[in-house]
Simulated assay, not measured.
Amino acid sequence: MKPIKSIIILLIIVVTSFSCTSDSTNEVIDFVDLEATVKTDVSYGNDEFQTYDIYLPAHRDSDTKTLILIHGGGWTSGDKKDMNTFIEFIQKDLPDLAILNMNYRLVDETTEAYPMQINDITDVVNHFNANLEEYQISKDFGFVGVSAGAHLAMLWSYAFDDTQQTKMVGSIVGPTNFTDPAYLENVNFTTVNLLEQLYGLELTTEFLEKISPYHQITEFAPPTILFYGGKDPLIPTSQGDLLQSKLEALGIMHEYTLYPEAGHGWEGLELLDTWSKLKAFIGANLD
């Protein structure tokens, strides 16, 4: 009987050891050090313009945040490829971030900017959230927009982000207040005619406030960084001044930079300064 009993005990030890080894092996297999991946022209809707590119960094995990880029073009033109310079900066200096570079439907004779383009951002965010498991990243993101794209980024973040998923927003020459006389009476730009073209209706003060980030911002708005040019023929400096005052009054973390000699965009040392400040702001609030 003793040999049989010894064999049974030995079998139990072997089975137990095998089970522990298998569990340990599974833990190692479940951990995957992910490689960098780029997915281009991901469709988030039925229109040809409803696509985005997503750049997923190596070694990403559930803490990896995403920066969503929104191009400019006066709401009527432009393309996600216009943000390629920012993608290069981000990949070089903030390599742990994912990047989502989106296109959106543009205004033409058959469409109106609002709410179409805001709805496109909502659809992008919904598509992003639905694919978090596939992308293997965090749900947290920030925005960087240029001109019309900056307006859309601010307006969506301030008025349409019901779950406060946005952790920061960066605006480069973005319109903020369509009731500002300095904007509506801008002699260098027929703003009223443009707005009528964009929105296709009689422009009431109530409607202009609805599409103005300045009028939609609340104390729940995310940290915001602003950049404007002192000689911008399209966007008066009051657009940045007004929003800066509102951010300060609401106690929202923010930064504001005015380049006195710059226009509607800049390059060289001013662009490097913009990226240096933007990089630090993203690092403090998103990275």
Rank of each mutant, 00 (worst) to 15 (best):
S77Y: 07
L67I: 15
L250N: 13
A159F: 04
D30M: 14
V192A: 14
N193P: 02
L208N: 07
H127M: 12
L94T: 03
E255Q: 14
T274M: 13
G170D: 08
K279E: 10
G78I: 01
N84V: 12
S212L: 05
L234R: 04
G263S: 12
S147A: 14
I9Q: 08
T166G: 15
F141D: 02
A98T: 05
I68P: 02
I29D: 05
T40H: 03
S22N: 10
V125R: 00
N126G: 05
E88G: 11
L97N: 04
Q136C: 05
H151Y: 02
K2M: 07
L286V: 01
D33H: 04
I87P: 06
L152N: 08
K246C: 08
S19T: 15
T191M: 12
D61H: 06
G72H: 00
T111E: 02
L258G: 06
E109I: 12
Y183S: 14
N186C: 11
M102G: 02
F178K: 03
T21K: 09
T237F: 04
F18T: 15
H59A: 07
A182F: 07
A113G: 08
Y228F: 13
D61G: 08
E206D: 13
T16K: 04
E88T: 13
S138D: 14
Y52H: 01
L195P: 00
L272E: 13
T218E: 10
V192M: 15
A153W: 02
D79K: 06
T176G: 02
D61W: 03
P57E: 02
L198R: 05
I70P: 00
A221R: 01
T257L: 09
L198A: 06
